[in-house]
């Protein structure tokens, strides 16, 4: 799904506070990512693509809903690039637009499991909606 308006590289850098130029292309983020196989674009690609300005492609990818925010890439990056913050910024670039929530409150009842902790619902709402 193409986005309705443009989010610039500068906005992503500002929202995330990340400087992709600190990346030395070691691949540690993608080596440590537990969600790697679920993603179309992988953590190291988020860094490289943001640096190149390919924001649109990332905004259109389901990968932005696959990050678990486990912070393994943030913790283990030897250059303190913090790739997960770019994933978050790109996702916010999408869901902050009107009618672009990834998850709607109406969707939730169908997803519920009696044992599911509230924490999961709150977290998902925080990550996927505005």
């Amino acid at each position: 799904m193409a986005s309705t308006y443009t989010v610039t590289k500068e906005q992503i850098l500002s929202i995330s506070g990340v400087d992709p130029q600190k990346c030395m292309r070691c691949g540690k983020c993608s080596a440590t990512c537990p969600s790697y196989d679920e993603m179309e674009y992988h953590p190291h690609q988020f860094v490289a693509m943001v640096e190149k300005g390919e924001i649109e492609k990332l905004m259109g990818s389901p990968s932005i809903y696959k990050c678990m925010s486990c912070m393994a890439c943030i913790q283990r990056c030897p250059r303190q690039v913090e790739p997960a913050k770019l994933v978050e910024a790109i996702r916010l670039g999408v869901i902050r637009q009107q009618e672009r929530n990834h998850l709607k409150p109406d969707d939730i009842p169908a997803l519920l499991d009696p044992e599911l902790p509230q924490q999961a619902i709150v977290s998902a709402m925080r990550k996927y909606t505005k």
């Binding site: 070691c26 993608s30 080596a31 440590t32 190291h44 283990r76």
Partner: peptide, 26 residues
């Protein structure tokens, strides 16, 4: 060309999880 993210000792083996940046694979 890539990094190792995790080594998990298990059952006498060392399970290595790593990235291959050229093939874009984990």
């Amino acid at each position: 060309k890539g990094a190792v993210g995790k080594v998990t000792p298990e059952g006498g083996k060392l399970k290595v999880q790593a990235s291959d940046l050229i093939l874009n694979e984990q």
